[in-house]
Amino acid sequence: MSRADGGTGSGAGTGAAAGTTSGTGAGAGTGVGAEAGVPAVVGGPPGAAGARGPRPWWTLGLFRSELTTTFRRSRTLALLGVLAAVPVLIGIAVKIQTGDGGGMGGGPEGGPAFLTQITNNGLFLVFAALAATLPVFLPMAVGVVAGDAVAGEAHGGTLRYLLVAPAGRTRLLLAKYASTMAFCLVATLVVAASALAVGALLFPLGEVTTISGTRISFGDGLIRALLIAVIVAASLIGLAALGLFVSTLTNSGIAAMAATVGLLITVQILDTIPQLHAIQPYLFPHYWLSFADLLREPVHWDEIVKNLGLQALYAAVFGSAAWARFTAKDITA
């Protein structure tokens, strides 16, 4: 029995070793090692003889496979397309309004942050677009991808084949979480890149005036923009973990997506009710717009750090919950 227990650890090592010595190392004792020779005898393709025991870098294959599977889905591409269109719309709207000769004097009080500066510096379209998409579009896209991650595979039945492969439940969940986080980053970068392109096309570029009133070079401004995009992506980590947890609860991808997006909207509403100010610092979207502090000189890190800490907390709590649920779940779909 102890041999079976040691399967993962020692199996990986001795299995590989036995493979290279043509798999006759049954005497070495571990089960995996003994089994190493069999595929060669049964008559596999060349190279299969050594293919025993997981190798660390091979397991990355699942993550890569997750990524390509996610990003080749037309739904994912449509979400990214919508995200890329938002800066285009903002840019054109601002351009038309200023083109009328009215200037930006009166109007923009109700709009997203940074809207007024766009006409002077196209780089501000990046900040404006991120500020506009962070409350709704970005988290909604992440909710769809995270919610679908496990439940969608369960619904399609592909989950059982991944697990029988055997992907390993913990490994599969980690790969799914990693690819969801990769989607957070890609989605944010798509918004930023589209905004930068539109901003450069429609408006002048140049030195950046920070919120504090100081001026930094355009190069510095670009670096800040990139940093902001990374922080915005990191702001979505908590939601991604929440979505993944919801995804392990059901066998319907649609239900998981709807539940995640519903939770997102509910939490956003709770965050605006003044009477609930006591709990608001613990709501995951509470510090989302703190990324603007990166445009101060010097940078105010307080709320940004609070935001990242909160995201890490959500990731830990709901990541653990997802793991506990998924590893104990009966896969009947």
């Binding site: 299995g15 393709p45 060349p46 190279g47 299969a48 050594g50 293919a51 025993r52 025991g53 997981p54 190798r55 091979w58 397991t59 294959g61 699942l62 890569r64 496979s65 390509t68 599977t69 080749r72 889905r73 037309s74 399609g156 039945g157 592909t158 059982r160 084949y161 991944l162 492969a165 055997p166 992907a167 390993g168 490994r171 599969l172």
Partner: peptide
């Protein structure tokens, strides 16, 4: 209980996906 496939992937890519789920499968072959 019947096959389950990724409709948006080609047959070949479906098999590549299932094979990469197996941590003991050699990606070189």
């Amino acid at each position: 209980e019947g096959p389950a496939l990724y409709g948006h992937l080609t047959a070949r890519d479906n098999l590549v996906r299932y094979d990469s789920a197996d941590p003991t499968a050699d990606p070189r072959t």
